[in-house]
Write a protein that binds this DNA or RNA. Structure first.
Length: 500
RNA sequence: GCGUGAGUAGUACAGUGGUUAGUAUUUGACCUUGCCAAGGUUAGGACCCGAGUUCGAAUCUCGGCUCGCGCACCA
């Protein structure tokens, strides 16, 4: 924990402004690991997800939606059913729980892959293995913790997906037919579920959460023949290679070309994925100096990954936090599903040669970026220091603009209502006529709303309004006719706000 | 899951074994207000849940739930 007080303040902000409620359901005490998005939070999440969509769409990806609940054979094939189940032993004295495989590998140095319960219990007896923390004896039973949520469908065991990726691979044959040739890329934005033992860290580790995972299906022979790479090879990324980590060096801005030359990155296609993922976070308005791209060490790579890098963001609350993983999953998944389903999951080269495609995966969630935006842009001020602010980048703000009549009389509310109706089909608009104008400006600013449109007495005569800029607090006057276009240009960054 | 600390209006805090549980802020209404976190009047809103001790528990004890921290877990 980097900043406990700030997390408290942030949490109070998120709850009272209607961003995040929880743990859910609050009136029944709540269950940790579950949170609800309130009105403002959901608008923010929509912004995040639409930002993701627009980057993927503009790079030729197509979106899918697959079921979240699938039969267990899928998870047997993918390997999740095994690796998601931890076998543990409990100390009879101090009640500490240990993963039995890790414990025995650490103490005896033996490789325990594929061991059964009996073998574990025997070696604890024969080698007289005791609890590392209190030297007490272990209970003679092995308990299994499954990180997958289970259910039943038609009397058969099903599981809720712990990631969207695996489910995205299942319609491979259909996709291959749709796209007609490789490479092709698809993504899903949707819920995934993990039965975490003790979730912590708010939205960062939930039991039910939203993933946005993209999959690039590619001929392994084409990984270094990737045209799109040429346009970005000079771009510099903040890389934190395993070499840098081991030597305790600082993060370095390295061009993709150099990274490839020095074999930090294995292929051009992979480099392109990494770059695309990095761009995702920049386009959400996350400052570049808060981002680093960290290579997994050999010891932490997932069972399916050949190479893996994480995009990490430095949060005020929790420090460096993984927000995206880019994995080279090779042909692991398609081969496994071919084996278990007894179907051919192959593609064909121009020369008629058949092969199993490789998959490059860009995996992230949309909850973490939402948390990140609130963490980075909310600033709590104490009494006397001024007002607390939520200076989220304008294009990511939950509400686009607020409409205020200067006073609640003399026809101002009626005209303001008219203005609202003119623009609310194109923008997310708040309307507020209660309290002083200053208070309403503040309220809107605390929600991150970039622009406030105010209707005053001149508006009635001139058919125009003022637009007030959140950060500079300055105003410009535009006619009712120009309003829609002006706001659109301001929000898209096409036009800069400049008060005369 | 283990250890440890905590749980009082929407939010942030105060508080005592004994009438109507305070303060700030927020919220609603009215008055006022020309871009200001103005001001005034007024209204609304809480002791996490359960059991026990007691004449009496929001306060003490125990259990549960949740949260923070440490350990473990985070494929």
């Amino acid at each position: 924990m980097q900043n406990e007080q700030f997390l408290k303040d942030l949490n109070a902000f998120m709850q009272s402004k209607g961003f995040i409620y929880g743990p859910f359901p609050e009136i029944y005490n709540g269950v940790s690991g579950f949170y609800a998005y309130g009105p403002l939070g959901k608008l923010l999440k929509n912004k995040v997800e639409n930002s993701v969509r627009s980057i993927f769409f503009s790079n030729g990806f197509r979106e899918l939606e697959c079921p979240t609940v699938v039969p267990d054979i899928v998870w047997e094939a993918s390997g999740h059913l095994n690796t998601f189940t931890d076998q543990t032993v409990e100390c009879s004295k101090c009640k500490s729980v240990f993963r039995i495989d890790k414990l025995i590998e650490e103490i005896t140095g033996k490789e325990t892959a594929g061991w059964k319960e009996k073998q574990f219990l025997e070696i604890i007896k024969t080698d007289r293995i005791s609890c590392p923390s209190c030297k007490g004896a272990f209970k003679e039973e092995v308990k299994a913790y499954s990180l997958m949520m289970k259910t039943q469908v038609a009397g058969k065991p099903f599981s809720l997906r712990p990631e969207t990726a695996t489910v995205t691979y299942l319609p491979f044959k259909r996709l291959n037919e749709y796209f007609r040739k490789l490479p092709f890329a698809v993504f899903q934005i949707g819920k995934a579920y993990r039965n975490e033992i003790s979730p912590r860290q708010h939205l960062l580790r939930m039991r039910e959460f939203t993933q946005a995972e993209a999959q690039l299906f590619i001929d392994p022979k084409e990984k270094n023949n990737w045209e799109k790479y040429e346009g970005i090879k000079k771009e510099k990324l903040p890389l934190y290679t395993s070499h840098h980590q081991e030597k305790q060096l600082k993060v370095e801005l390295i061009s993709l070309d150099d990274a490839l030359k020095h074999k930090h990155i294995k292929s051009k296609a992979y480099a392109w994925c990494l770059h695309l993922a990095y761009k995702q976070f920049l386009s959400m308005g996350i400052p570049a100096d808060r981002i680093r791209i960290r290579q997994h060490l050999d010891t932490e790579r997932a069972f399916y990954a050949d190479d893996a890098w994480d995009i990490e963001i430095k949060l005020n609350t929790f420090g460096w936090t993984e927000c995206c993983g880019v994995h080279d999953r090779t042909d692991y998944d398609l081969k496994k599903h071919a084996e278990f389903s007894k179907q051919k999951l192959e593609a064909v080269r121009e020369n008629g040669e058949k092969y199993v495609p490789h998959i490059l995966e860009i995996a992230f969630g949309t909850d973490r970026p939402c948390f990140t935006l609130m963490d980075l842009f909310y600033e709590k001020k104490e009494d006397g220091e001024g007002k607390s602010t939520f200076s989220i980048p304008y294009h990511m703000a939950p509400i686009d603009l607020a409409v205020f009549p200067l006073q609640k009389k003399d026809g101002l509310p009626e005209y303001a209502e008219h203005i609202k109706q003119v623009i609310e089909r194109d923008f997310i608009v708040d309307f507020d006529e209660s309290g002083s104008i200053g208070k309403r400006y503040l309220r809107a600013a605390e929600s991150g709303t970039p622009y406030a449109v105010t209707i005053d007495y001149d508006s009635l005569k001139m058919k125009d309004v003022t637009i007030r800029d959140r950060d500079s607090e300055k105003q410009i006057r535009v006619s009712e006719k120009e309003l829609k276009d002006t706001v659109r240009k301001l929000l898209s960054g096409e036009m800069k706000f400049s008060a005369k």
